[in-house]
């Protein structure tokens, strides 16, 4: 299973969500995407986007203004 990384640090919402959406569009079920961001809005928006599209947030960490969200692509 492939694991990809998406760096959207410095970008403000909804750009991180849009980038996430297009990256996941090219991935398959079960693969994981690690998103690195800095906008605190992503803590809310990326999980919300994942819920409505059936993807799963596996992990969220926040350290020194840096946010890391790991997503498992759904069906």
């Amino acid at each position: 299973m492939s694991h990809q990384t998406l760096d959207v640090r410095g970008q403000l919402c909804p750009i991180p969500v849009i980038r996430c959406q297009s990256r996941i569009g090219g991935m398959s079920e079960g693969e994981t995407l690690e998103v690195l961001c800095t906008d605190p809005g992503t803590l809310h928006d990326i999980p919300a986007w994942c819920r409505i599209h059936g993807h799963k947030v596996l992990e969220t960490t926040e350290e020194n203004r840096e946010i890391r969200i790991v997503i498992e692509v759904g069906a």
Partner: peptide, 15 residues
């Protein structure tokens, strides 16, 4: 800070 469009979609149960 929620994105209102995402929030509305979730309330409606749509993508």
């Amino acid at each position: 800070k929620r994105n209102n469009a995402l929030w509305v979609a979730e309330q409606l149960g749509i993508k």
